[in-house]
Simulated assay, not measured.
Amino acid sequence: MKQHEADHIQMSVPAKPEYVGVVRLTVSGIANRAGFSYDDIEDMKIAVAEACTNVVTHAYEDSGTMNISYFLYDNRLEIVVADKGQSFDVTEVRGHLGPLDVSRPVADLKEGGLGLFLISTLMDKVELSNESGIVLVMTKFLHGDEVEQDVDGFSETQPEQ
Rank of each mutant, 00 (worst) to 15 (best):
F154P: 01
D89A: 08
E131Q: 09
A6I: 08
H58Y: 15
E127H: 08
V147P: 05
S28R: 13
V13I: 13
E160C: 00
V151W: 08
A6T: 14
D124I: 08
L116C: 07
L128A: 01
F154H: 11
S69H: 13
D74S: 14
E78W: 03
D145T: 11
L128E: 00
V147R: 13
V56Y: 06
Q149K: 15
K84E: 05
S12I: 08
R104S: 10
L142A: 14
L109F: 07
G29V: 00
F88V: 10
L122N: 09
Q158C: 07
D62C: 08
E131L: 04
G133W: 03
L72R: 13
V81C: 13
G98Y: 00
F154M: 15
G85W: 04
G95D: 02
V106R: 11
L25C: 06
V151Q: 06
V126P: 05
T121E: 07
R104N: 04
V135S: 04
G21Q: 00
A31V: 03
M11S: 07
R33H: 10
A6S: 15
P17R: 15
V126S: 05
G98L: 06
G35I: 13
R94I: 09
S120V: 04
V137E: 03
K84A: 03
V56F: 06
I30E: 05
E42A: 09
M1T: 15
Q158M: 13
K125Y: 10
T53Y: 00
S87I: 02
D39C: 09
S28A: 12
R24N: 02
D43M: 01
D89V: 12
L128G: 01
M66D: 02
V126A: 10
L97T: 05
Y73F: 15
E50K: 05
S129L: 01
R76A: 15
A107R: 10
Q161P: 10
F117W: 08
V20K: 12
G133P: 03
F154E: 13
H96D: 07
S103C: 01
V56G: 05
H58F: 15
S120G: 12
A15S: 14
S120Y: 03
L114H: 02
H96I: 00
G29K: 13
G115S: 12
